[in-house]
């Protein structure tokens, strides 16, 4: 192959996404939707145990569409560092994360109210590409009927004002007023965080 050959540099393109659809629960949370006996329990429903280190927190909220209606069929996954800022992942090269904390959670929204809720720990700080520490945050991925490609956003914490003010990702925002769309309200371990897909409060979504 030479550098004058037309065509793609790499052999493949990513498989295109398709919506998770209204029945995503069958595949990802079958016990939640009444399909029992196939798996012992749904994955990602229990993030913390007695052995998990760190400050216990709960984060709950809803995802709203452009008409202000909560999505009742949404599925949310979160991924976060442990209390020391380490990820429980083979790709984590800086050390070994808390073995009692996977850092990954999955929640199907309540089918009546649209609420999601996670019981987890406050994550530690993780470096940005230049080594500066990012503010504590939880990474979120949202899929549902009508969402053609999963949406990536983050949750930061209102009671981490100093870290938030120096966060390298927030530095990238041209419109600083949009930072507020990523900050969960609350304290003392209880946070609420609504996500807006459209409208004046539209949440910041990332191209990661």
């Amino acid at each position: 192959m030479t550098n004058v050959t037309p065509g793609p540099l790499y052999p493949f393109k990513e498989s295109p996404s398709q919506t998770a659809g209204p029945y995503v629960h069958i595949g990802l949370t079958p016990n939640f939707c009444g399909i029992e006996g196939v798996y012992d329990q749904d994955l990602g429903i229990a993030m913390v145990s007695d052995k998990t280190r760190g400050e216990r927190i709960t984060v709950e909220g809803r995802v709203f569409d452009g008409a202000g209606t909560p999505l009742k069929d949404v599925l949310v996954e979160i991924w976060q560092a442990d209390t020391d800022g380490l990820y429980n992942s083979p790709a984590e090269q800086r050390g070994t994360a808390d073995p009692a904390f996977t850092g990954w959670g999955r929640c199907a929204a309540d089918q009546t109210t649209g609420h999601f809720r996670f019981e987890t720990i406050k994550p530690g700080r993780v470096p940005f590409t230049d080594g500066r520490l990012q503010a504590p945050h939880i990474n979120i991925w949202i899929v549902a009927r009508g969402i053609n490609l999963g949406l990536n956003t983050r949750i930061y914490f209102e009671d981490e004002a100093d870290a938030n003010a120096a966060d390298p990702v927030f530095e990238r925002f041209e419109h600083k007023d949009r930072v507020a769309t990523l900050i969960a309200r609350g304290g003392n371990g209880k946070y609420s965080h609504d996500i807006h897909l459209q409208g004046p409060q539209e949440t910041v979504f990332f191209d990661i």
């Binding site: 800086r94 993780v126 390298p168 990702v169 897909l197 539209e202 990332f206």
Partner: peptide
């Protein structure tokens, strides 16, 4: 009604 309308914000991959 479920498609974000504002541009996505990009940044270099971090460990997150």
């Amino acid at each position: 009604l479920r498609a974000p309308q504002r541009p996505l914000i990009a940044f270099a991959n971090t460990l997150s």
